Simulated scan of single mutants.
Amino acid sequence: MELRHLKYFAKVAQLRSVSKAAIALNITQPALSRQIKDLEREVGYILFDRTPRGVTVTAAGAGLYRHCETVFAQVDRIPEVLRTASQNREMLHVGVPQGLPYDWFLGLLQAVDVQVPTIALTLHEATTDEQWQMLQSRLVDVALLHREAPEAGGSMLLMKQAIGVAVKADSPLARLAEVGLAELDGLSVMAHAVGEIAAEEIRLRAAATTAGVTMQWVFRRFSEHSGLIAVTSKVDAVLLTESSAARHLPDWVWTPVRAERDPSFDLAIRTWATWNEPQTAHVDALLTVMRAQARPRG
């Protein structure tokens, strides 16, 4: 099996048409059909069901298509791997979610450079759910997740970040030292969407219900345009960490959410470092540095 066979297969699976894929690949349709049949014969599975309107992937084909993403990603990394290896350094891929403090990352990178100069870190920004898939596919060596991953080889709590409320400077809430959920009753509040920080939507709705308050929720995946989304949605407040507020809403005032006696009101964002076992010596060295940089109590 050659890499080009997988590229041909992936293009047909993407376009769901041999003829369209042939045009995109700049080869003839009969030649592409032969390549696909050769691949099916070699792997021993039918990869496509032929229909009058084109093709659809079989269950086996869908599995191969998902695996191709991993194969192509590893191939794309070859120049970086060679460059790092030529410097006698081991490249480690680390998945990171949005919202972690910039100063923490900078301190981690500086500590790694000093303590483990044989490591070269490459960061991949992705949501918790995306990182979990990348970890299982071994596209990252260490994933930083906003939930403690089940079935993980290893997991370590890295930090706990307080949730706060960002409001415009002229908001009455901007004058408070801390904000409780009661102060948000009846307001329009924006927060992270599910998938950005796993299950936060469910947790926030449950906390509001327990507190007996009603909010008009606006759930969005936070991005470089979060400030514009907050303005156009005309929200009164945004629930997020202080580091996220500094990044997305630099002109707004951030105030921590008041701690409540009920444990259900613990809305802090926790981040775990997660890795596959058995871990390599370089991964173990990185985790040692991370452990020293951990802020598990916020």
Rank of each mutant, 00 (worst) to 15 (best):
R220F: 08
W252S: 14
A237G: 07
W272T: 15
F265Q: 14
T210Q: 13
T214R: 15
W254P: 01
W252L: 10
D266A: 11
A273K: 10
V253P: 11
F222Y: 07
T255A: 05
P256Q: 08
I269H: 08
A268W: 09
S233K: 09
F265G: 15
T210C: 03
G227D: 06
A230G: 11
T274E: 14
E242Q: 15
F265W: 07
V238I: 14
E224S: 01
T241V: 01
T210H: 12
L228S: 04
A246T: 09
S264E: 14
V213D: 06
T210A: 12
V213A: 10
A211K: 10
W217M: 05
R220H: 11
E224H: 04
D251G: 08
S264K: 11
R247K: 11
V231P: 00
E242D: 13
V235N: 05
Q216D: 12
E224Y: 05
S244Q: 08
G212M: 00
T210W: 10
L239M: 13
T241M: 02
M215D: 03
S264I: 14
S264T: 14
I229G: 01
T255N: 05
T232E: 15
W254V: 01
R258H: 06
P256N: 08
Q216K: 12
H225S: 03
L228V: 09
S243P: 04
L240K: 04
I269S: 05
F219N: 09
I269D: 07
S223K: 02
T271R: 07
R221G: 01
R258T: 12
R261T: 15
A268R: 13
I269Q: 08
A268H: 14
I269T: 08
A211Y: 03
L267Y: 09
E260A: 13
G227F: 12
P250Y: 02
A245Q: 05
T274R: 06
A259L: 02
A230D: 09
V213F: 06
S226D: 04
H225G: 00
F265D: 05
R221E: 02
R221Q: 05
L249V: 00
V218C: 06
P256F: 04
D251W: 03
S226K: 06
L249W: 01
A273Y: 05
R270T: 13
D251M: 10
S233G: 08
S233P: 04
A237M: 10
A259P: 00
T210D: 10
V218F: 03
V257I: 10
L228W: 09
R220T: 04
S244G: 11
R220G: 00
P250M: 02
D236R: 13
F222D: 00
V235Y: 02
L239D: 02
R261V: 13
T214M: 14
T271G: 12
R221C: 01
S233N: 09
T255L: 09
R247W: 06
W254C: 03
T255K: 14
W217P: 06
V238L: 12
D236H: 15
W254A: 02
D262C: 06
V235H: 07
L239S: 07
A273I: 05
L249D: 02
T210P: 01
K234L: 11
G227E: 06
G212D: 00
D262V: 08
T214K: 15
W254S: 02
T255Q: 09
Q216C: 07
L267H: 05
E224I: 02
